[in-house]
Amino acid sequence: MKKPDWNEKQIERLLNQMPLVKDKQTADEIYQSIQFKIQSRKKKKNWIAPSIATAAALFLIAILTPLILEQGAKEQKTAMDLSNSEKAKIETAVQDDGQTSEQTISNDKNEDVDHQLNQVLMEDQKETFVTKASEAEDIITVGFTNDQAELILPVSLELNDKKKKIEVIEEIKPEIYSDELGPISFELSGAEIDEEANNEEVNIDYHKNVQISGSSEETLFLNSVIETFRWDNYKKANLYTNDKQGIELSNYGVKNEVEMQKELKKAYFLYQYSEETQKLLVPSPNSYDSIEQAIDAMKTGLDHELKPTIVNHIIIKNIFEDGEQLEVEFEAGSKFEDNQEFVIMLESILLSAKEFGFKTVYFKGIDINHIGVMDVAHPIEVPFSPNPIEEH
Rank of each mutant, 00 (worst) to 15 (best):
E327I: 11
L82W: 12
F358P: 03
P50L: 08
P388W: 00
N118M: 13
I48Q: 13
K132E: 13
E381N: 12
D108Q: 11
A136Y: 00
A377N: 11
Q71P: 08
F336H: 01
A297D: 02
I176V: 13
P66V: 04
Q95F: 11
I368S: 04
L67V: 03
P66Q: 03
D97W: 15
I30A: 04
L351Q: 05
G246H: 05
S213C: 05
F129V: 01
G143W: 02
Y271W: 09
E292R: 11
K262H: 14
G357C: 06
L153Y: 02
L20W: 11
I212A: 10
L69A: 13
F336Q: 01
K173I: 09
L151Y: 08
I90K: 13
K262F: 08
I368D: 05
T65L: 01
E175P: 01
E91Y: 05
Q125P: 06
D367L: 07
I295Q: 02
Q119R: 14
L159F: 03
Q39A: 15
A237E: 04
G72A: 08
P383W: 03
D205P: 06
E192W: 09
P388Y: 00
A79H: 14
D322L: 00
K236N: 09
L159Y: 03
M345E: 04
H392P: 02
F330H: 03
S284K: 07
L302S: 04
L181P: 04
E347H: 00
E341F: 02
I61F: 00
A57C: 13
D289S: 13
I140P: 03
L302C: 01
I247H: 00
E200K: 15
R13P: 07
S85A: 15
I184L: 00
L350H: 01
L153S: 04
Y240M: 05
L346M: 07
K266I: 08
I193L: 10
S156D: 01
S33W: 11
V130E: 05
